[in-house]
Design a protein around this nucleic acid. Structure first.
Length: 271
DNA sequence: ATGGGCACCTGGCTGC
DNA sequence: TGCAGCCAGGTGCCCA
């Protein structure tokens, strides 16, 4: 999926098109996403206005009068703003039609995405309640990471991707942040020094911030709200670069498997 | 509590 | 050309 930078880029793209607008219709073409989408949304949503579009972790929160839509893009999902007359494409699953002829449409080949409607505080929804701090907000730094890592034997790369520890870091940016911090992805989380956690926290913030500026990373499916790809791919140091020379020391980048996911690293720069 | 593995699903690529 | 096998921006859940 889209990781934090891609979700944030999507948020910025759809927010300007949605805010203040009135929903005229909700069309559910395929309710079989990660969790079944409630067909009643077709009755519940029309007439409501969009107050704001927020992001928490990799979830988009679309605040309406009297409730919030919680949308997740899964691995391959994208939300785009389109003219209402645009024909349905393969893997288009739902559409929020707005006044003035535009609509927000969700496309997701793998259907790992989701859509929930809540009338209370969305941050208290079970999917969101246990999430860790935002990496670009207060409460995330090296001291925090070091504290959470005490005694943990899990590899630091998997630790960093645990959304209960810190949100938003997925498979691409975990490898990239560890490279920037010079930390070997297989090192036990509890055996990384506080000094190196300070470097790692700064690296996470830097790589996510830079990726947001570039509109995210497009590998395959991901497109922004206006259909354009993200341009951060050319700035990646290690992800999907196995066998190619390290951009700092020219040692070939290596690939390994951790928790059924690929990890990329430089065996010379990362210890 | 922690760690490890599987499941959900489709499509694109590789190699025989 | 056909097809099996493997891999892909995530994460909830089950088991030891």
């Amino acid at each position: 999926m889209p990781e934090l930078p891609e979700v944030e880029t999507t948020r910025r793209g759809i927010r300007s098109a949605l805010r203040g607008r009135r929903i005229s219709e909700f069309v559910l073409r395929n309710h079989k996403l990660r969790w079944p989408v409630d067909h009643k949304l077709a009755q519940v949503l029309p007439g409501r206005h969009v107050r704001d579009v927020r992001r928490r972790a990799k979830y988009l929160l679309i605040d309406l009068d009297g409730g919030t839509l919680i949308a997740h893009l899964g691995m391959s999902g994208s939300l785009r703003v389109l003219p209402c007359e645009t024909p349905w494409l393969k893997h288009d699953h739902y559409e929020i039609r707005l006044d003035k002829g535009s609509c927000l449409r969700f496309n997701d080949p793998r259907r790992f995405g989701s859509l929930h409607w809540v009338t209370g505080d969305p941050l208290e929804h079970p999917l969101l309640a246990g999430l860790g701090p935002e990496p670009l907000g207060a409460g995330f730094d090296g001291a925090y990471l070091a504290g959470r890592a005490k005694g943990r034997k899990v590899a630091v790369k998997q630790f960093l991707m645990d959304q209960r520890i810190v949100v938003g870091v997925g498979n691409i940016y975990a490898s990239e942040a560890l490279f920037r911090a010079g930390i070997h992805p297989r090192r036990a989380a509890g055996k990384v020094s506080p000094e190196r956690y300070a470097r790692l926290a700064a690296a996470v913030q830097a790589v996510l911030g830079e990726a947001i500026k570039q509109g995210g990373t497009t590998l395959r499916d991901y497109v922004n709200a206006d259909g354009t790809p993200g341009y951060f791919r050319q700035k990646l140091y290690v992800y999907e670069r196995d066998g190619q020379p390290c951009r700092k020391c020219h040692t070939p980048i290596r690939k390994l498997a951790q928790g059924q996911r690929s990890t990329y690293f430089c065996p010379s720069c990362q210890k």
